[in-house]
Design a protein around this nucleic acid. Structure first.
Lengths: 235, 235
DNA sequence: GAATGCCATGACCGCAGCCGCCATGCAGGC
DNA sequence: GCCTGCATGGCGGCTGCGGTCATGGCATTC
């Protein structure tokens, strides 16, 4: 992510400050980490409304029922969403809300994929409490925060293109996302229709819509595009 | 690559020593790096026969004409072969000959992919001369050498499976490899047939053979398998 | 009520995948 | 020599899946 690209990113709220963050949503399947994060946030930021969800599906449902939070902290390895899928899904539902990725994996390619997908920042699970709080405050003030060991210059080329691609993936409906995930597992249309309990014809129309949205013609191209932004990690 | 996996790897010569390496082949498209390597090897190991090739195709042709060298040093980013393809191709032609990967990219996933594909070791382009010579000597004595910053334990699971997969890819004929590369670019059979100037029916036959060899049913699965061992990098 | 977005279905057509078959080149056995 | 066996590359036909189109139901929103 180049500095220019960061500046160019459109944000709905013109000049956010950390004070405006009053309600936060933590999405993590590890209860311990969930509690630890919630506690830290309550103490350090004086937040009362800390909501939690154990899966991506639960988070989506909760946002639909209880409304949008002011910020999200999202685990990278959820049971139902590995890789950039979580960011993409939540950004579709919460445009303008800062999403912070948290993970133990500090691989450069994964970080740049997350940032290109529209994350506000990426922090390590093994960060000290002070560093964690500081990173989150800076993110909520609009800054893009990445780990020190991450050098964005390494893959400068094609970065804006990946961000554009991530934006396209963000337009996929939930059902389309499910189907794309199965496609990226090498499943045939008939298998997909069976797993989702719909007709094969329906699968095909969804696929046509997906192809159109991400600008692919063959399904192999769709797989390559999804892999290039690390939409689904191995699993 | 676990220690157990290293021990288990079959080597044709029972106990190789660095002294047995008399003729070496350097495959690198960068002339400067090529010369520097050749000079270093001549001085440090007293080697007279240092052959060079500027592309994978040239290397394959040269081996066919001039016979097998005792060791190979292979650049990761050749004009006609990025990623693990170079290792796989050369291992098919030179079973038992130690192949050393050399690259500026020290990303963990790339290193483990190279090792799983059957490389004897992986060294950085920015290594000092002493360290380079030492690494090569150890490799030629049968040791598997990886950079210090690389932690093989990070992706221990599925590693043996990847090595098995790489062995399967090594059975592909040159024509089949060409076709697989085009498949992994999202090309349709008709396009492939045009690019290779053969009938579409022929492309299909080759694809059937490829599928059978790598144990895939749908072409999307073939793409995923190739990507999982990083057979072809983006480009 | 009209408009929009999401999901679902069946019919049509071209390509993907599997089959059988043929040509060439190269090894080993008679 | 010859023949056989095997690997590789090439071809066309058949079946079924992949991809497009036109259509309709069902929510939400204006």
């Amino acid at each position: 992510m180049t500095a220019a690209a960061m500046q160019a990113r459109p944000v709905s709220s013109p000049r956010p400050t950390a004070d405006q963050v009053r309600e936060i949503l933590i999405v993590d399947d590890h209860p311990l980490m969930c509690d630890a994060l919630a506690l830290t946030l309550k103490i350090s930021f004086g937040l009362k409304n800390v909501r939690t969800a154990r899966s991506l599906a639960a988070a989506v449902e909760q946002i639909r029922m209880q409304g949008a939070p002011d910020a999200v902290i999202l685990d990278l390895n959820l049971p139902d969403a590995r890789g950039a899928e979580g960011i993409v899904t939540l950004r579709r539902q919460l445009p303008g809300v800062p999403i912070t990725m948290i993970s133990a994996d500090l691989e450069g390619a994964m970080i740049s994929a997350a940032m290109a997908a529209g994350a506000q920042g990426y922090i390590s699970k093994s960060l000290s409490r002070e560093a964690l709080v500081d990173s989150l405050r800076r993110m909520w003030e609009g800054e893009h925060v990445t780990p020190e060991c991450y050098d964005p210059a390494r893959d400068d080329a094609g970065d804006e293109a990946k961000a554009e691609l991530a934006r396209r993936f963000a337009t996929l409906t939930p059902q389309q996302m499910k189907i794309l995930r199965l496609i990226c597992q090498g499943k045939a249309n008939k298998e997909i229709s069976y797993e989702l309990s719909i007709a094969e014809a329906t699968v095909k129309t969804h696929i046509t819509a997906i192809m159109s949205k991400i600008n692919a013609r063959r399904r192999t191209q769709a797989v390559l595009l999804a892999n290039s932004v690390r939409l689904f990690e191995a699993g």
